[in-house]
Every structure is written in C-alpha cells, then in structure tokens.
Amino acid sequence: MNPLLITTTQAVDPVFKFIFGVSLVLLLGITATTVGFVIRYRRSRAPEPTSQSSGNIWLEIVWIVLPSILVLAMFYYGWSGYLSLRNVPKDALPVTATARMWSWSFTYANGKTSPRLYVPVGKPVVVNLVSKDVLHGFYIPAFRVKRDVVPGMKNFAWFVASKPGSYDLFCSVYCGVGHSAMITTVEAVPAAEFAAWLEKGEGKEEKAAGKALLEKHGCLGCHSLDGTAKVGPTFKGIFGRRVTVLTGGTERTITVDEEYLRRSILDPNADVVKGYQPIMPSFPGLTKDEVTTMVEFIEGVR
C-alpha cells in the first residue's frame, strides 16, 4: 500500500478522537468548576453576594478566544478529513454497487457480478453507488464509510482494506420491511487471490448461471435457499409445493410449476403467496433465456 496514501480510516479517526478529547476535557472542567462553586459559594457559607466586580476583561477574552480556536481547529480537521474522503486515488479499482429492496450486488469492470464486495488488500477501491428503487445507505463501519444511495443521483465512496478479513456492509437507511436483512460483507483478500477470483467466469457464489442471475437481481435478499424465513417465500423445495395465493383478492390453491415461477418473476403481484406482502418489484429487462435459467435453478433447490 502507498505509504503516502491517507485512507478513510486514517482521515476519520483522528477527527473523532480530537473532538471527543476536547468534549471530554470541557465536560470534566465544567463539572469540576460547578461542583467547586457549589461547595465554596453555598448559601450557608455566603448567604449574600459580596463581590463588587462589574466585569473581568481577561475572563471575557478567554471565553471568546478559546472557543473560537477550538471551533476553527475542529473545522480544519473536519474539512481536511472530508477532502480525503472525497478525493479518490487515481489508481482506485472501480466497482458499481447496486442497491435494491433488499439486497446488494456488485459489478466489476469486466462484467462480473457478486452479492459480496471482493476487494484486494492494500489497494484503493472506489464504489459507484446506484439505487434501483428507494433511498438506501452504503455503510461499512470498519472503513468509516457511510454514503447515501439515492435513485437517479450519482454518488460514490472509496476505501482501502489494509488487512485481509470479512467486514460487515449494511444499509443505513430504512428502506422497507426487509431493511434489516439488507446485509452483506466486504471480503478483503490478497491481491493475487483477488486477481484469480476476478478472472474466473464464475465465483464461489455463482456456481450455477441461475443462481448468478438471482444474485445479480437481488432475489436472494428476500428468498432464502435453505428454508430460512425472509421477506418472501423460501426457494427450498418450492417446486411442486401446494401453496395458497391471492389472485386479484381471491384466494386459490395452486401447485408451483414452471408457469407459476415464470409469471411470478415477470409479474410478481399477479399471484401473491398468502401471508406475504405484494412488494416484489418487476424485472422487465429480463430476457426469455434468463427467466428460463432462473426457473431451472429454482426447480433444483431442495
């Protein structure tokens, strides 16, 4: 990693520590002064004011100059830190983060897509933020990164992972009933391992083309593959199952088959499984072959 590069963590932490330290000193100082005054000038000891002083020029200078210096120092550190957060290094790796209710997907320059953000250790990464529906928040506590993801607005964040590891990535803005499940990770790996992963046609999470498409379009943010309860019905064992759906407000029992799965992908509110909200977005840009691939994968989830 470039020793001259100031990372987002290095930009934010000193500002936080400085402001916290100043606040702590002021808190202790004001508290100690207040307690001292209460003890020294309590009513039983001095029932009537005896001071004849009309003012103290030096005291007034101190309480004007000192807070001004502190505020200017906070501004300086905050502004320099903000510039570090917004000035992206020229050699940063570009990644596009797509947020939708309620999942993340990350697309790299070569077209590869992953539900987790893979990054090389020691290299700056700039993440271009895109929302497909509502307001979301791109938040990685470990790297002190938090940016709004606004529909129709260009925004970005950058960071450097200084050591290998798995770091939580959250949505920091309430975006609907599945907001709490909109969690993924940043996987920081050595540069050589990242290069090998990036060049592979399929990653570990994309062993099947159908699963890759489900991940790309955020389906697995609401539908689990292992039976776990989420915002939408689990895909585990769904094919061939008898389910009760609401069609135009009327209940009916059907068997999940290929036709039903295709219709649910292209027109998700046509037949809503009873007990679930009609909140699934439609995907008009899907091709016939893509829908077929997705349906075939769902059929095999047991």
Score class of each variant (00 low, 15 high):
Tyr174Cys: 04
Val121Gly: 00
Phe16Trp: 13
Ala46Phe: 13
Leu246Ser: 14
Lys216Pro: 05
Val95Leu: 05
Pro268Gln: 08
Asp168Asn: 13
Gly36Arg: 11
Gly227Ala: 07
Ala191Tyr: 03
Lys132Met: 11
Val126Cys: 03
Ala212Gln: 12
Ser264Tyr: 05
Tyr167Pro: 10
Val186Met: 09
Glu290Pro: 04
Gly248Leu: 05
Ala196Lys: 15
Arg40Asn: 11
Pro120Lys: 00
Ala270Val: 07
Ile238Thr: 14
Ala181Thr: 09
Thr96Trp: 07
Ala209Glu: 14
Pro47Glu: 05
Arg252Ile: 01
Tyr260Gln: 11
Ile298Trp: 07
Asp148Tyr: 13
Tyr76Asp: 09
Pro268Thr: 03
Gly240Ser: 07
Pro67Asp: 06
Lys146His: 12
Leu266Phe: 00
Trp63Pro: 02
Pro190Gln: 05
Thr7Leu: 00
Leu70Gly: 05
Asn2Lys: 00
Ser84Glu: 11
His179Ala: 14
Arg43Pro: 01
Val35His: 06
Ser23Cys: 10
Met294Phe: 09
Phe297Cys: 04
Val291Glu: 04
Ala142Ile: 00
Asp267Ile: 11
Gly249Lys: 09
Glu290Tyr: 05
Ile265Tyr: 10
Asp13Leu: 13
His223Glu: 08
Gly176Glu: 11
Val65Leu: 15
Thr33Trp: 14
Gly111Asp: 03
Ala99Arg: 01
Lys112Gln: 06
Tyr276Phe: 15
Asp267Glu: 15
Gly152Ile: 01
Tyr108Leu: 03
Phe156His: 13
Leu26Arg: 06
Ser84Lys: 14
Val38Lys: 15
Gly21Leu: 12
Val145Met: 02
Lys146Thr: 03
Val273Phe: 07
Asn2Phe: 00
Gly137Gln: 02
Gly237Lys: 15
Val71Asn: 08
Gly221Glu: 06
Thr228Lys: 15
Gly227Met: 08
Val145Leu: 06
Arg147Leu: 00
Gly78Lys: 07
Thr96Gly: 01
Glu187Ile: 09
Ser44Asn: 14
Ala208Thr: 11
Ile64Val: 14
Glu259Ala: 14
Val35Ile: 14
Asn128Lys: 13
Leu198Val: 06
Ala109Tyr: 04
Thr96Met: 08
Asn56Gln: 08
Val291Gly: 06
Leu59Cys: 10
Tyr108Gly: 05
Lys274Ser: 12
Phe156Asp: 05
Glu290Ile: 01
Cys222Lys: 06
Ala229Ile: 13
Gly203Leu: 12
Cys222Trp: 06
Asp257Tyr: 02
Gly275Val: 01
Met1Asn: 03
His217Pro: 01
Ile140Gln: 04
Pro67Tyr: 10
Ser114Asp: 15
Arg86Tyr: 01
Val130Ala: 08
Leu169Ile: 02
Phe18Gly: 01
Thr107Ala: 11
Leu129Cys: 03
Glu258Pro: 06
Ser166Pro: 04
Ser105Leu: 03
Trp197Cys: 04
